[in-house]
Design a protein around this nucleic acid. Sequence first.
DNA 1: AATCTAATTCGATACTCATCGAAATAAATA
DNA 2: TATTTATTTCGATGAGTATCGAATTAGATT
Lengths: 185, 185
Amino acid sequence: MSEELVTFFKALSDANRLKIIGLLAQKPYSVEELAALLDLKASTVSHHLSKLAKVGLVSARADSYYNVYQLDEKALELKSRSLFSQENLAASVVDVDADAYDNKVVKDYLRKDGGLKTIPAQRKKLDAVLRHVAKAFKPGKRYSEKQVNEILKNYHADTASLRRELVGSGIMKREGGGGDYWREE
Amino acid sequence: MSEELVTFFKALSDANRLKIIGLLAQKPYSVEELAALLDLKASTVSHHLSKLAKVGLVSARADSYYNVYQLDEKALELKSRSLFSQENLAASVVDVDADAYDNKVVKDYLRKDGGLKTIPAQRKKLDAVLRHVAKAFKPGKRYSEKQVNEILKNYHADTASLRRELVGSGIMKREGGGGDYWREE
DNA sequence: AATCTAATTCGATACTCATCGAAATAAATA
DNA sequence: TATTTATTTCGATGAGTATCGAATTAGATT
């Protein structure tokens, strides 16, 4: 889950909270002492400490009048080691739509009737459009050149270019020398 | 300097920027592709990338039409290892006034004429006040009990308590059995 | 039990920043 | 050279948050 990582980094992206960590790395302090050292009000320090506590970096221990906070060095060590682990990197990406770019490109090039406005000149966009067009062919089924043209006509008048690009990009296959076309399963 | 650390953490405390890092960990992407994948506008992605670039985590490489961004894995590795190093922890604390707490406590207990309102009951505050009072004694010089009382009278009528606490806390020394008092250098 | 004291919570304010759209830039193709 | 396209910059807006002071809570001392 990515939210947890964000929360962790947010907890550390404040100068005063970093100072608190630096101070607690030396020895435990009460809220009052931290407030005096940082020239902040106790309520503000309490706010900071609660954020640090929420991510498990500090913890409190009651000592007579005071609430003494201490740094959890174990957690610090553990976190810093795993921050950019393969798991965390992968986890941050789980909810991105891998086809979003293709979809956007195709949408930009498609008319309302499903035909192509133009055939993209740029490689990346052409590929995205080709992948879309290829869906009109059933995987594994073989088509004659005439049948291929019939289908491609729905997308653009220049069926020859489409056909050539489909084969050239490897999205569709062609049996050597004027044979049939097909899309791999 | 602590500002650099804060900037680094801030660069990472945004869900979309973490997603960008996760994506770039797989392969380089252009701004446009990232925008589509994250469902953001290109200007927003550009903003995010500039923040990541500022802390050295990503860099751009021009590729025909596109500006392809890539993750600097070396920098990532390096940074993550040194984030909570002793140097960084210490650096975050350099500009805090170590005496701020003592000063605040003393200020709270001092009248305008320099005398004590009361003698603090709490250990921590008593210590702070004692450290202040002790400054009235020249380090190394020896004082008779009478002289000590004369000086302590300026702070509080209960000179016996002050004297006892000064010795008990170890701030002042006393030669065994009714001898002289002194403060270590 | 009554009283202090430190800590936390709450409401308000000011500032930072993510996001967008529009305008300006840069780079490559035609 | 003119035009297209991706990117960056700029200004505005809305959401988030650091900070404070006041009120409340929690604990300990008397």
